[in-house]
C-alpha cells in the first residue's frame, strides 16, 4: 500500500473542470514532481490532497485513511503533511524560531524547551539556526523558504508538499533551496513537488507526473520525459523549457 493513493480525483469550480480524474501513487520514501502548463491544475491538486480545497469527487487515501471521508480527522491528517508554499507564508509576527515551534507547542503540545530543541535542529539542517531571533521581514526570499521548510520538517511529517518552492526566488537563492531539497531527497524524505524548475525537477525526483488540462498525461522518469518524448504535447513543453 502506497503512502498516498489518489484515485480519480475531480475538482470543478462552477462549470470549469480543473482536475479531471487524477490518479497516482506516492510510496513512502519516494519523490515525485508534478509538472505541466500554467493553469493545468497543479496547485489545485496539492490543495485537494490535504483538503485546503474540497475535491468534487474521487478518493485520496493517506496512510491508509480516506482523507475525503466525512468522518476523516482532516486536521490530524494535515499535521502529517508538511506544506511549503511558493511565497513562504511565514508568520510575520513571529521570530524564525517561533515560526518553527508554534505548531510543536500548540498542536503537538510539546514543552517549550523540547520544541525549541527540535526547531533548532531543523533550522540547523536548513542552515538557518543563526537567524533564530530574526523576524520574517528581515529575511531574504531564500532564507524565508529555508525557514518554511524547517517549519514543515519540525512536525516530522510523513510527506512534504512543495508548491513551486523556487519560483519566487532569484536564480542564486533558488539553487541554494534546490540543494537543500536535494539533500532531503537523498535522505529519502517523501516528497511531492510542483515546479516549473527543470533543474529542481531533475535533481530531486524519482519520477515526474505530467499534468495537462487536469489529467495525468504521463508519468515517467525525468530522463525519459525531458528529451524527445513521443507525445508531442510533452515534447513541446520540455522543448520550450530546455
Amino acid at each position: 500500500m502506497a503512502l498516498l493513493e489518489v484515485r480519480n480525483l475531480v475538482k470543478t469550480f462552477g462549470t470549469k473542470t480543473v482536475l479531471d480524474g487524477v490518479t497516482f501513487d506516492l510510496e513512502e520514501g519516494q519523490t515525485k514532481v508534478i509538472m505541466g502548463p500554467s493553469g493545468c491544475g497543479k496547485s489545485t491538486l496539492l490543495r485537494c490532497l490535504n483538503r485546503l480545497e474540497e475535491p468534487t469527487s474521487g478518493s485520496v487515501r493517506f496512510d491508509g485513511k480516506e482523507m475525503t471521508a466525512p468522518t476523516a480527522d482532516v486536521r490530524a491528517l494535515r499535521q502529517l503533511i508538511g506544506f511549503v508554499f511558493q511565497n513562504f507564508a511565514l508568520y510575520r509576527h513571529l521570530t524564525v524560531l517561533d515560526n518553527v515551534t508554534l505548531a510543536l507547542r500548540q498542536l503537538k503540545k510539546m514543552p517549550a524547551a523540547l520544541a525549541e530543541e527540535r526547531a533548532l535542529h531543523e533550522l540547523a539542517r536548513m542552515d538557518m539556526a543563526e537567524k533564530r531571533d530574526a523576524y520574517p521581514a528581515s529575511l531574504s526570499g531564500g532564507q524565508s523558504q529555508r525557514v518554511a521548510i524547517a517549519r514543515a520538517l519540525a512536525m516530522e511529517p510523513r510527506v512534504l508538499f512543495f508548491d513551486e518552492p523556487t519560483s519566487a526566488l532569484d536564480p542564486v537563492m533558488a539553487r541554494e533551496v534546490v540543494t537543500l531539497i536535494n539533500r532531503l531527497y537523498l535522505e529519502n524524505v517523501t516528497i511531492l513537488c510542483v515546479t516549473h524548475d527543470l533543474y529542481l525537477a531533475q535533481y530531486i525526483s524519482d519520477s515526474i507526473i505530467f499534468l495537462d488540462q487536469g489529467k495525468v498525461r504521463a508519468e515517467d522518469k525525468a530522463e525519459n520525459l525531458l528529451s524527445g518524448h513521443a507525445d508531442p504535447v510533452i515534447a513541446s513543453f520540455f522543448g520550450r523549457k530546455s
Binding site: 490535504n50 485546503l52 486536521r75 490530524a76 491528517l77 494535515r78 499535521q79 503533511i81 506544506f83 508554499f85 511565497n87 507564508a89 511565514l90 508568520y91 510575520r92 509576527h93 508554534l102 505548531a103 500548540q106 498542536l107 518554511a148 517549519r151 512536525m155
Partner: peptide, 27 residues
Amino acid sequence: LLPTELEAAKAQGFSRGQIFRLVTAPQ
C-alpha cells in the same frame, strides 16, 4: 493580512479558533 499565511496555518493543522488566536488576532 496575507491569505497564504492563514492558509499555511490551516495546512499545518490548526483549527479556526487557533488560527484566530495565534495568527489573526496578534496581527
